[in-house]
Amino acid sequence: MSRIDDSRDFVPVRIAVLTVSDTRGPQDDRSGDTLVDLLQGAGHILAARAILRDERDAIAARLREWCADPGIDVVISTGGTGLTGRDVTVEAHRDVYEKEIDAFGTIFTHISLGKIGTSAVQSRACGGVANGTYLFALPGSTGACRDAWEGILARQLDYRHMPCNFVEILPRLDEHLRRK
């Protein structure tokens, strides 16, 4: 059963937050603010933060830049995961992923179903790994950010979470790049 092992020390991870929006700026980025509050409240480190317009190439470029930064372990984006023509965050993430974490979107949808009913079908939240960095794309609402954090990420980004968590395998995510 899922549990916290108090005999293990908490290990903070360095998280970058990317807000994707054509209309939000630093003064009204409520979803980005929510993620920052949640990750810092849990004891993690805000490693970087940015707001970009819904432009696939620019989003992918920022994700690649952050994946190449040894000071960033995790990137969480918010916004641009819907179905409209301007929603390109998922495509940008998939341009960067080496491996997709398929169950992330499934579990997020399950959590959302309990909160917003069949409207959950409109979310394309996803997760993956690239260059030894975890990447997660969340919808742009504060509720969705909170649901993803509290329902999935708070536990998976906690080294004490058992039976397993993302933090304990973080050092091995890029082992294929180190093989000669």
Rank of each mutant, 00 (worst) to 15 (best):
T89R: 03
R155Y: 15
R178K: 11
V17C: 08
M162W: 01
E150R: 14
D22A: 13
F10K: 06
A60T: 13
T84W: 15
L83W: 12
E91T: 13
I4E: 09
R8G: 05
D54L: 06
E98Y: 08
G80I: 12
I4P: 08
L173P: 05
A60F: 11
R53G: 13
Q27H: 13
R62M: 12
A16M: 01
A16I: 01
N131D: 13
R160G: 11
V167H: 00
A130R: 00
E175Y: 12
R94N: 13
P12E: 00
N165Y: 09
L138S: 07
L135Y: 02
A58E: 13
I116A: 10
V20Q: 02
L83P: 04
L35W: 04
V75N: 03
T81G: 01
L52M: 05
Y159M: 12
W66F: 09
D95G: 10
G25L: 06
T106K: 06
D95F: 10
R172K: 14
D147P: 01
R3K: 15
R53W: 07
Y159H: 15
L52C: 06
G128P: 04
V75F: 02
D73V: 03
S119Q: 15
A48Q: 04
A120Q: 10
H44Y: 06
I152A: 11
G41P: 05
V90M: 08
S123C: 07
D28P: 06
T34A: 14
D57N: 14
A92I: 11
E98L: 12
S123M: 09
A50G: 07
H93A: 14
P171V: 05
K99Y: 15
G140I: 07
V74G: 00
I116L: 08
W66M: 05
T118F: 13
C126F: 09
G151Y: 06
L173F: 09
I72P: 00
D158Q: 13
L113H: 08
R8N: 09
